[in-house]
Simulated scan of single mutants.
Amino acid sequence: MQPGLQPIDDDLVRRLIAGRFPQWAGMSVERLASGGTVNAMYRLGDDMAVRLPLVAGGAQDVVTEQEWLPRLADRLPVAIPEVLGAGEPAEGYPWPWSVHRWLVGEHPDAGVLGEPVLLATDLAGFVAAMRSITLPRAPRAYRGGPLAALDASTRAAIEELRRIPQEGVNCDAAVAVWEEALRTPETEGASAWLHADLMPGNLLVDGGRLTAVIDFGCMGVGDPACDLFPAWNLLPTDARRAFREALDVDDATWKRGRARTLSQALIALPYHRRTNPAMAHNARHVIREVLGEG
Results as ranks from 00 to 15, higher is better:
residue 1 M to L: 10
residue 9 D to I: 10
residue 13 V to P: 01
residue 19 G to H: 13
residue 19 G to I: 08
residue 20 R to T: 13
residue 24 W to L: 12
residue 46 D to Y: 10
residue 48 M to H: 11
residue 48 M to V: 05
residue 48 M to R: 15
residue 51 R to C: 08
residue 60 Q to L: 12
residue 61 D to V: 01
residue 63 V to K: 03
residue 71 R to N: 00
residue 72 L to W: 05
residue 73 A to S: 13
residue 78 V to L: 02
residue 82 E to P: 04
residue 82 E to R: 14
residue 83 V to G: 03
residue 85 G to F: 06
residue 95 W to K: 00
residue 97 W to A: 08
residue 98 S to T: 08
residue 100 H to G: 02
residue 114 G to V: 12
residue 119 L to Y: 09
residue 119 L to E: 03
residue 121 T to C: 03
residue 122 D to I: 03
residue 126 F to G: 03
residue 135 L to V: 09
residue 139 P to A: 12
residue 144 G to Y: 02
residue 147 L to H: 08
residue 156 A to W: 04
residue 163 R to W: 11
residue 167 E to M: 09
residue 168 G to A: 02
residue 170 N to I: 01
residue 171 C to F: 12
residue 174 A to D: 07
residue 178 W to Y: 10
residue 187 T to Y: 03
residue 205 V to S: 06
residue 210 L to P: 00
residue 214 I to E: 02
residue 217 G to F: 11
residue 218 C to W: 00
residue 218 C to H: 08
residue 230 P to K: 08
residue 233 N to D: 09
residue 236 P to R: 12
residue 244 R to E: 12
residue 245 E to W: 07
residue 248 D to Y: 06
residue 250 D to P: 04
residue 251 D to T: 15
residue 252 A to H: 12
residue 252 A to Q: 12
residue 277 P to A: 15
residue 280 A to K: 10
residue 290 V to E: 04
residue 290 V to D: 04
residue 291 L to R: 01
